[in-house]
Design a protein around this nucleic acid. Structure first.
Lengths: 343, 343
DNA sequence: TTGTGTTTCTTAATCAATTAACCTATTTAC
DNA sequence: GTAAATAGGTTAATTGATTAAGAAACACAA
């Protein structure tokens, strides 16, 4: 059986390659009768249409969107918030006939994907700084989400404001505070942060959240310094539990803990209860994200509700429409049983 | 600025395109000195190497693997078991420098992806039967997981045997049985199955699990017919809760319920407890999958533990190595507090 | 009849690479 | 000293399409 290409099919049907191409791509460039005849004969031969790889070489468009993740793919798909984001992206892409290529945030460059994608969505700050560099150098359009690269439009919520409001409405003057953040410094360890340099607020969403907390602490006259700050490298059980144990064994024991994700908050509460403490009576716990898990949990979490789904959808739309305008999406505070409002 | 291509760079450096190509691809086809000189000058010019799209057109390899999912991407990434599978796949692909393209199981064909991928991993039976057809017609290699397509190697666990053993070790002679399955029939509704035709066991993992249950029921002399069988269309809370309510309100009330996923089991137990029932005293519940959630749950689940992670890894390796031999992975029974063994 | 416009199709350049085949020197073998 | 082998390149065909430009055929108006 001969290979089926535009050329071989054209020879078989006795017309030029341009005519076959037009039959598939530009209906009004040839007579209706001829077009139908060509399509019918192609179907008979088993030719399903022009090779998409060759087309993309010529046209410069592949119909594939690269989704660059902050972390490895394997980590990301198991993270509830990130999965919801991917959900939103994929829904938009599916309705627009675009394909989704997942790019690990641990990779060193974009060499193996750059020629296959029409543009990038970048969700969070890639673990590997070289990748940010590669993104800032590519000629393809880029939309960043939850972080920023100079010159590219982004989708964000106002993390500083969200955390500021959260503290303002939950803190009490005599509180002993602790904060558990996510990847505030470049390390693969759970650690307490004293006076070390942290990741830049421009690339680090956690750093911006910290700025929001700090602003409110200062305004409320609450003592907070870096000895009360912990950071975990990944948003998973093992690190969260380790951080919880350390925070809970610290003296004086905090009376309120601000966690930068609902997952951290849930495991923190679990540990606290296991120690015989009552939440919120002995210690109040605040999360971030507004996940289903956090709301199903007992006690259900006080948290910042953000819609990761629509974040993904918006970002995808922006990329497809080549929009240059950054978007700031709304958030909502939810006061659950893990920490009542101070009002 | 001139466009950077092999050709333009070759002209600039005064050598042939073949030499530039060889400098990047076949180091021993030219002298070390010349190669280093070329690479250096390319770096100066900002040429990062041959265009991957053009290369793939010529070579017929893209370095991209298509992962065809049983359901939509947006549903799949939020499913714990499927996410773990993707995890395993991506880990293997990352270490082998391959890219991952996600393909929705709801799509109608593979036209927009087929020319961009070197092969397919297919996880579960796609929602759209046309897609199975497209897979069976593609000339690219295919590995199926948790289901079968004639002529392609697959990765499976022995679902029939697992379910058979599970029933054998949990059932009691006087039990009233109920089974809650996943997508046993082609519908988007939660429904009780009487005597309707179900999806073929070859494509349906749930149907094979049912065969295992039934074999053990028959051997143990336990009454089971299709009035005691329910099916939900997606492995999510809303459908699971609805099915749980229906099963729990059925008379006579079942004394043991076999759920085809841990998620179904968890929501079933939640509903049962909400009704004032005790698990396992009033009703015993059995899951499937061995998820973390199921083990963290109170009471923790009696279930079949399968390693989705390594399923993904194995499948990916098979695709990359062009292996033709199907693999049957091991499973393990776990007896938790939701249903004690009858031994 | 001639000129103009439209429809319908073809020719050939182009997209950015890879690679088999070929050509020169220079080494090596005997 | 001659033949064979090797190293280090180049030439040109090929991969499978798209598309600008051109040509042939026909209709219609002046």
């Amino acid at each position: 059986m001969k290979k089926l290409t535009l050329k071989s099919v054209a020879e078989e049907l006795g017309v030029s390659t341009a005519t076959i191409s037009n039959a598939f791509n530009k209906p009004n460039q040839l007579s209706r009768a001829k077009r139908l005849e060509i399509l019918e004969r192609c179907e008979e031969l088993g030719y399903t249409g022009p090779n998409k790889a060759a087309r993309s070489l010529r046209r410069g468009k592949t119909g594939i969107v690269g989704l660059v993740l902050a972390n490895s793919i394997s980590y990301t798909v198991n993270d509830a918030v990130a999965s919801t984001f991917i959900s939103g992206v994929s829904q938009c892409l599916e309705t627009n006939g675009q394909q989704l290529l997942l790019v690990s945030g641990a990779g060193d460059d974009l060499n193996n994907v750059n020629d296959f994608v029409d543009g990038y969505l970048c969700y969070g700050s890639p673990t590997n700084p070289n990748l940010i560099d590669a993104l800032s150098k590519t000629t393809k359009p880029v939309i960043t989400v939850d972080f920023n690269i100079d010159g590219y439009p982004s989708v964000n919520i106002d993390n500083i404001e969200a955390c500021y409001q959260l503290v303002k409405q939950t803190i009490r003057p005599d509180d002993v505070v602790a904060v558990i953040g996510l990847r505030l410094i470049e390390t693969q360890l759970t650690c307490r942060i004293y006076d070390v340099p942290m990741i830049d607020p421009v690339t680090s969403i956690s750093r911006r959240r910290l700025l929001g907390y700090e602003k409110a602490f200062a305004e409320c006259g609450v003592d907070f310094n870096y000895g009360q700050l912990w950071s975990i490298p990944e948003n998973i059980e093992s690190f969260a539990v380790r951080a919880a144990k350390e925070v809970l064994s610290n003296q004086p024991r905090p009376t309120i803990v601000y966690c930068m994700s609902d997952l951290i908050a849930v495991y923190f509460i679990r540990e606290a209860i296991e120690m015989g403490l009552s939440v919120p009576d002995d210690i109040r716990v605040v999360g971030f994200d507004g996940t289903n898990e956090g709301q199903r949990f007992h006690p259900n979490l006080t948290t910042v509700v953000q819609n990761s789904d629509s974040k993904g959808e918006r970002a995808a739309i922006m990329l497809l429409k080549q929009s240059k305008e950054s978007q700031l999406l709304p958030f909502a505070l939810h006061f659950g049983d893990s920490c009542p409002t101070n009002g």
